[in-house]
Design a protein around this nucleic acid. Sequence first.
DNA 1: TACCGTTGCTCAATCGGTTGAGCAACGCTT
DNA 2: AAGCGTTGCTCAACCGATTGAGCAACGGTA
Lengths: 337, 337
Amino acid sequence: MPLKARRKTTIYNIAQKARSSPSAVSSALNGTWKKRRLKEETVERILRIAREEGYTANLQARGLRKAKSGLAGLILPNHENRFFAELSETFALESQARGHCPAIVHAGRDVEVQLQALRDLLSYAVDFVFIAGATDPDGLARLCRDAHLPHVFVDQPCAQAPSVVADNRAAAAALTETLLEDMAPSDPDDPGSWLYLLGGEETSSATVERVRGFRAQMQASGFLYSEDQIIACGYDPVRATDALGRLHRDLGRLPGGLFVNSIDCFEGVVRYLAQVPEAETKRTQFGCFDHDPLATLLRVPLRMVRQRSDVMIAEAFRQLDAGAQGGSLLQVPCELL
Amino acid sequence: MPLKARRKTTIYNIAQKARSSPSAVSSALNGTWKKRRLKEETVERILRIAREEGYTANLQARGLRKAKSGLAGLILPNHENRFFAELSETFALESQARGHCPAIVHAGRDVEVQLQALRDLLSYAVDFVFIAGATDPDGLARLCRDAHLPHVFVDQPCAQAPSVVADNRAAAAALTETLLEDMAPSDPDDPGSWLYLLGGEETSSATVERVRGFRAQMQASGFLYSEDQIIACGYDPVRATDALGRLHRDLGRLPGGLFVNSIDCFEGVVRYLAQVPEAETKRTQFGCFDHDPLATLLRVPLRMVRQRSDVMIAEAFRQLDAGAQGGSLLQVPCELL
DNA sequence: TACCGTTGCTCAATCGGTTGAGCAACGCTT
DNA sequence: AAGCGTTGCTCAACCGATTGAGCAACGGTA
């Protein structure tokens, strides 16, 4: 028992008590003792003492020597999205399972802040980094390459590096198709009966892909009548509330269908719906690109897409393990609920 | 520009290029150069070269030398609660703002796993640790004390250490009071008209406090007729669904009021409600101890309590700054929505 | 000329774990 | 008795930043 643990026990302390050397202690503790031909008896003595003293390795020292840290880095924008929260949790659990300690940095959407976050992680000598929602993927990728830091882009891809993203286009197409099936048939002459897409930033590749999927499916079905059917008002709930209000006023009714581009926008949408007579909200077919368990239970016709953050993280680790280097793009299918 | 950054630049590289010594470089970089009487001119030369070489300090080396790491530890149970997700985000942002890198570990509810998580953080020489949802607070506190590691317990208090928790009892009482006001008056002879509390673990101090607040308020108002009004079925949504189903069957109706003990249970509750005729769900007054923006918009009479994870983290940091040592309990008021 | 204080730096130890090199002792062969 | 392989360990350099101690040069004073 560490009766008076002034300082933390080190291999030097243990070596003294075990009448042996720091190197012996080191190799006994990390399992290289067979390669270093220590007697099993010696090893056991060392291990016993280490246990008695409550020894824990100083990972900074080890990291310094091995130029590794056991840290796993994740760069995230500031959780503007529940999807990122799920992503970070999955990442944390999976890193731990693989013997790494997760270091999760929130870096917002600003290019400079993201770069600085990456530099910070480099300072900590993280063993690898996943980057989600990169604003300037190429700049970040260059920094990683210069530092020989294994990296995988998630959610927002990078042409120069391994990337894992949701198959936004296919999922958007599938959601669109389902909404069209569930809606009352669109009347080309009545904009109130059409399907609209609401929310998203044209600068984000996720939105671009989703719009592309939406557009493709709408054209294939012959229901795209106007560019006004695509309203990319950003991800902010307040903006979504406003945009829906304007649409409602212009149409004189809620549209026949509404494809909401993220759970955050959806929050704005639902907030608007709260002040619309309940019966009217039930005539619109809603779709949301993102998933929330509670949303299932709003008494409104609703389809949701779930991005498989668990699969994405798993695939990202697979890329790491495979030592992926150049640009590669893996698209993970989404779930339609 | 780091044209061929084989290895990362160190103070030794910079010292060479600046025709000076590592010590000079070190003190130029970390601002102690005035105390060490370096010429301003020298300092500028060093800084310029450091900038050109894209120098970043090796924090492992620094940490090893200074017996500090710049890491901030947080131990969490496995996000069974959205509250913890919010807590971890706030923690991450606040740590970063204070110049620390957050290291967040998910350790579940198991005593041994939590202890091991703490030992891991000790190995990384974290500068301090916040512990949320501790199963064995005393054991964890002892480990921290032995290692001289500043620590604050959050959510689940520890008698031997500084603790910051939500004022569960007061908030539960307030929520109970509001529910009673909003409900149709209880009839002592009709259990269907009563207010019930659903969910929570009797082993968690949060539940104990909430039940205490509920009970006190119910007694004060004269509406506690039976111990059956308190149904602590755990935090699992499925259990909540089942428990509510049983209650519904026994009463022959939904109860007059339902105090749901956490957002997770609430998910189970809402899942059950989905199969109940909508009109009937509107006759029950619901309360949820925890908050979700989407839940506001379920078309059901609902009050929610929001635990101020931001305030709790801020207070925890304040305890750290004050160098709090022994047992102290800070209760942060909740918000009633 | 001897002494002192100041200025502007450098030296070298240190943090704790890792690891290639090497050494002593022993048994065995020739 | 010399040579060799094996066993079981220890030595010491190293990772990169920090920091107390100390040194050389210079100007000024006695």
